[in-house]
Amino acid sequence: MERGARNLITDVAGLRVGNAADATLKSGVTVLTADAPFAAAVHVMGGAPGTRDTDLLAPDKLVSRVDALVLSGGSAFGLAACDGVMAALHAAGRGFAVGAARVPIVPGAIVFDLLNGGDKDWHDNPYPALGRAAHASAGADFAIGSAGAGIGALTGRLKGGLGSASAVLENGATVGALVVVNALGSATVGDGPHFWAAPWEMDTEFGGRGLPGTFPAAHEPTPVKQLGEATTIAIVATDAALEKPGLQRLATAAHDGLARALVPSHTPMDGDLVFAVSTGARPEPDPAGSFLLGHAAACVLARATARAVHAARPAPGDLQPCWHSLFG
């Protein structure tokens, strides 16, 4: 396994990612799309998710392809970002065909960033416009850290953010991850600079600090956020041909990456979920190949999670320090 050329989810050829954010709002939207519809599934492990149209992604449901996935700030208000993305796709003639009608399929998930110090006193919901702008900016290269849906993200100790990473397997398949880290838990060990995800780091992509010489004794963490205020939402992607059952299994395996990178994770107060998508550009994997894809998805998501926190940068009005200011 080696790192992809960009070390972004867009190393899976055909995928594009766009960001849009409002620095005063301290919130934003990130969109994953492609030139053609793609297969998708989802698995939710957190206790406080916020989602739109995820029921469509179950293996027994009719719709087999989606046109885009949306990751947004704004809590329930942010689900309206999907409206802006749908409008842009509809204008382009995209969508599920029902006779002469076209209905773009755009599932989404949100993080809670309403209490992060940004100005949330809006008159009209800003998220449809942010969604449309994020879709319009979609490309192979995009910013991570304090960008898109991660611009206002917080964690248990440090400023969160948007992260991405990729890997190319020996069989030629590519796996990538995209994540908004707004977790109740922490991505770093104790008060130091070391990331829990360090064993899976490639090429000093989040500082190369390795693991600390000693670990803090077992303790009972005290939540610093309330019910529903924390969520880590992610997308893992591959070019290996998988349909919804296989993708649901891939999303399930990828959750291991969140557990490796965030302590604690999957709490009743987090809405942790992972989408999984396939472009289908490579052949369907055999059982051994499916095993490797799941392992790679967990590794890549752990790395993307650490990169989100490592790449965050300070901004006026921040309520938490960022890793770079303390240790960079």
Rank of each mutant, 00 (worst) to 15 (best):
M1E: 00
G4L: 02
A5D: 14
N7Y: 03
D11F: 04
D11S: 11
V12R: 00
R16Y: 07
V17N: 02
N19L: 05
T24D: 15
L25M: 13
L25F: 15
L25W: 00
K26N: 06
S27P: 02
S27L: 05
D35R: 12
D35F: 06
A36V: 14
A36G: 05
F38N: 00
V42L: 08
V44T: 15
G46D: 04
D53L: 14
T54K: 09
L56M: 14
D60H: 14
D60C: 08
L62Y: 08
S72R: 01
G73C: 08
F77Y: 15
F77L: 03
G84P: 01
G95H: 04
A97D: 05
A100K: 11
P107R: 02
K120M: 06
D121R: 15
W122S: 09
N125L: 07
N125C: 12
A129P: 06
A129I: 08
L130H: 06
G139K: 06
G139V: 09
A140T: 14
D141Y: 04
G150A: 11
G150V: 06
G152S: 10
A153H: 07
A153L: 09
L154Y: 01
T155Y: 00
G161T: 06
G163I: 09
S164A: 14
A165D: 10
A167P: 02
V168N: 07
V168C: 11
T174F: 07
G176N: 12
V179T: 15
V179F: 10
L184N: 00
A187D: 06
W196R: 05
W196A: 02
W196N: 01
A197Y: 05
A198S: 15
P199F: 11
P199C: 07
P199E: 12
P199K: 09
W200P: 00
E201M: 13
M202T: 05
D203F: 04
D203V: 08
T204Y: 07
G208C: 11
P212D: 12
T214I: 12
H219F: 14
E220M: 13
P221M: 12
P223Q: 01
P223C: 08
A230P: 01
T232H: 03
I235T: 10
V236S: 11
D239Q: 11
L242S: 02
E243W: 02
K244F: 04
Q248S: 13
L258A: 04
P264D: 04
T267C: 10
T267R: 03
T267Q: 01
P268W: 12
M269E: 06
D270N: 11
D270P: 04
G271N: 02
G271P: 04
V277K: 00
S278F: 05
T279F: 03
T279V: 07
A281S: 15
A281C: 04
P287E: 14
P287S: 13
S290R: 14
S290V: 06
A298N: 09
V300G: 03
L301R: 10
L301I: 13
R307L: 08
R313C: 04
P314N: 05
A315P: 00
A315M: 02
P321G: 08
C322Q: 00
C322R: 00
W323L: 03
